[in-house]
Amino acid sequence: MWYWIFKYLLIGPLLWLFGRPDVTGTENLPRTGPVILASNHLTVADSFFLVLVVRRRITFVAKNEYFTGSGVKGRLTRWFYSASGQVPIDRAGADAARGALAAARGILDRGGVWGIYPEGTRSPDGRLYKGKTGVMRVALDSGAPVVPVVMRGTDTVNPPGSRRWRFGKVHITIAEPLNLSRYHDLRDSRPIVRAATDELMSVLHGHSDQEYVDRYAADVKRSATR
């Protein structure tokens, strides 16, 4: 219930005011059954705008720190991320990736919509970075369709690193589901999973105006802090 109140009554009106979002390709999203929405990632607001324009409930896997704060601020933060369709996962330790993928598989097994950013983190400079293979491992194992999504303009409305929002125009493109049938019989092969992931990133690149970088965004961020 809180998800829909959050979407239509609380954050939704503000998103329409600041971002004036338009969306193309809504017919490419299956109306029922499990589906993976795989999007580029410019800013925190990406998740909120995607929730706003997609009629089905979307669930994201978010870092556990959003749900463990104390006091009034901690409770409000926990409610905010829960209401916006995010579930916690402990990303620390060797089993972090496995736990995240297991949580995602649970969402799909229940016939839900899993929202995921294949780059693994927000772009540090607005470019599109190499995709991590987890999304395709889940997709090929579960058989859930993968629908690429491209966000544009969210970084103008919600500039990375800033808590201030600005007026802008958000464009969201929902592309056709990927045809992964040729990968299915070899889904346990790492090169095949890598090839499927690269195909996804190629589609995202083709629908966006971002420059593609064949490096992981997380590696670029770590290099910048040294």
Rank of each mutant, 00 (worst) to 15 (best):
I107D: 01
S82Y: 04
A103V: 07
N40D: 08
R105A: 12
L29G: 11
I36H: 10
S39F: 14
S142K: 06
L101R: 09
L52C: 07
H41T: 11
R110H: 04
L128Y: 05
E119S: 07
G111M: 03
N28G: 12
P118D: 09
I107R: 01
A83E: 09
A103P: 01
W114H: 04
N64P: 00
V51R: 06
F60K: 06
F67H: 01
D46P: 15
L29R: 04
G153V: 14
L42C: 06
K63G: 13
D141F: 02
L37K: 08
S84F: 08
L50T: 04
D95S: 15
I36Y: 09
V147C: 06
G71I: 06
A103M: 14
D141H: 12
A96D: 08
L128K: 03
P124E: 03
F48N: 11
A104F: 04
G106V: 00
T77A: 09
L140F: 07
T133I: 14
A38R: 10
L101Q: 13
A103L: 12
F49G: 09
K130P: 13
S123Q: 01
G112H: 03
I89M: 14
L108E: 02
A102Y: 11
A94R: 15
A38P: 14
G112F: 00
V150F: 05
M136S: 11
T59V: 13
L50W: 04
K73H: 00
I89E: 11
F48V: 09
V44C: 05
G153F: 10
V135H: 05
N40L: 10
P148M: 08
G126V: 13
T43I: 07
R57C: 03
Y81G: 02
A103W: 01
V147L: 11
A103K: 14
R122C: 04
A100E: 08
